[in-house]
């Protein structure tokens, strides 16, 4: 039933596709993480001049489809002379950079909201107690505030990383030959489902399982002190795919 000769023939291509998917995931994921840390502080700030611009950014990025964002960057920006004539044009010229930029901005927006939510949920008493013990501002941030927020954000952040990995499949629409693009080409050239999309699905499933395991281990490391029965309780709002209006 399964045509193994097609699979064997295409395996190197799938392997290269996997590498592209992983590079996109890691570079966009890390850049998004780095940007989300300061942005989430601003977002959670009580100062409207800090929180509002970040809110507008996350609202727009989370309120529009990623495919539209990707097409605006990839197809749209070269229409503007200001982009074509800028020093950054060599970057925007490259499809991979455009995909990276779109995925980074998108994941930054979601991660910022996840972190901001965790920051806002920091028990005031925790920080007050630390200050009362004479810890400096930096010490409070470094030893009390961030570790707590990180622990609270971790489960949702793990979910976001899996979503980002799935989102990289959209790069197939702008000439980037990642896993799904390889699958689409195999389907186009051989008209077989299992050997094309089925193979791509196996790779994505495997990636999902690996990422889930990594985050489960991270949660074990960071949430060790919590009663396991607490983390097993799942409320309805946490079972949705992406929290948009959290």
């Amino acid at each position: 039933m399964i045509n193994w000769s097609i699979i064997i023939e295409m395996l190197p291509a799938f392997w290269r596709g996997l590498q592209i998917t992983l590079i996109l995931l890691c570079t966009a994921g890390l850049a998004g993480l780095a940007l989300a840390v300061p942005l989430s502080l601003a977002r959670a700030s009580s100062h409207p001049l800090l929180s509002w611009p970040v809110f507008i950014f996350t609202y727009i990025l989370r309120g529009t489809p990623l495919l539209v964002q990707l097409f605006i960057i990839y197809y749209g920006l070269p229409q503007l002379d200001i982009v074509r004539q800028s020093a950054f044009w060599p970057f925007f010229r490259d499809p991979f950079f455009c995909a990276w930029l779109a995925f980074t901005l998108n994941t930054t927006a979601y991660t910022t909201e996840i972190f901001a939510g965790a920051i806002r949920n920091t028990p005031a008493g925790e920080v007050e107690a630390a200050r009362a013990m004479g810890l400096s501002r930096t010490q409070v941030l470094r030893d009390i505030f961030w570790p707590g927020a990180w622990r609270r954000a971790l489960p949702q952040y793990g979910n976001e990383v899996v979503q980002l990995m799935h989102a990289t499949a959209l790069a197939s629409t702008i000439t980037i030959v990642e896993i799904l693009r390889v699958g689409r080409d195999v389907y186009y050239n051989h008209l077989v489902i299992t050997e094309s999309f089925g193979m791509a699905a196996v790779f994505f499933l495997a990636l999902t399982v690996v990422l889930t395991l990594i985050f489960r281990i991270l949660e074990k490391l960071f949430l060790r002190h919590l009663d396991p029965r607490d983390s097993a309780n799942v409320s309805p709002s946490e079972t949705t795919k992406v929290t948009v209006n959290a």
Partner: peptide
């Protein structure tokens, strides 16, 4: 080789300098 999905995209990309 930059392989695009649609023929008009060939010229869009050329004009875009890609």
């Amino acid at each position: 080789i930059l392989a695009v999905d649609r023929e008009p995209a060939v010229y869009l990309e050329l004009a875009a300098g890609r």
